[in-house]
């Protein structure tokens, strides 16, 4: 087994690590850099739990070899909240709208939507649901996540209702 030294900047911090060529970025982040917020749910690109930002773009970390990324900038879910733990706009909306239950898909959802909402002004419901289609969630039925995306992008969740609720509220 040959280890190759690489440099990765993750969440603004530079790391020098030695990796086997075949080691997936998801595994290097989790095992070598102890950033276990990046979750692994399928390792074939389908579930989205492992999504990270590579040079600002949301990508699957299970479909990248860390060795490809020497001198790249990566942001993981751990890098999104403020240094004092203040949640970013979408994270805060997720809490307000109950966009997570078990929390396993959540890092991928948060990374993906933080990037998506930064790039898209005023997406409509259809846009939001399509944007979310690359992140599978087995718990929430997506209602809370969609509401969080609405709240975070439009400042209001659902016409005539509060986030997370149906016609009750």
């Amino acid at each position: 087994m040959t280890l190759v030294p690489i440099n990765l900047t993750v969440n603004g911090e530079r790391h020098a690590v030695a990796v086997e060529a075949r080691k997936l970025l998801s595994d290097v982040l989790r095992e070598d850099l102890h950033l276990t917020g990046t979750h692994v749910g399928c390792e074939h690109g389908a579930c989205g739990a492992c999504t990270v930002l590579l040079d600002g773009q949301a990508v699957r970390s299970c479909l990248l070899f860390a060795i490809q990324l020497d001198r790249s900038e990566i942001t993981t879910v751990e890098g999104l909240a403020g240094g004092d733990g203040t949640l970013n706009r979408f994270q805060a909306a997720m809490q307000e709208c109950h966009g997570l239950q078990c929390g396993f898909c959540t890092p991928g959802v948060v990374v993906s939507m933080t990037a998506y909402l930064a790039d898209h002004d005023q997406p409509d419901d259809e846009d939001l649901r399509v944007a979310l289609s690359g992140n599978l969630c087995r718990c929430t039925g997506y209602q809370g996540i969609v509401n969080a995306a609405r709240l975070s992008s439009r400042g209001a969740a659902v016409a005539g209702g509060r986030p997370g609720s149906g016609p009750t509220a």
């Binding site: 773009q57 949301a58 990508v59 699957r60 993906s112 690359g134």
Partner: peptide
């Protein structure tokens, strides 16, 4: 094609 994260790469 897939999802935006797939197309990003």
């Amino acid at each position: 094609i897939g999802h935006f994260q797939i197309r990003n790469r």
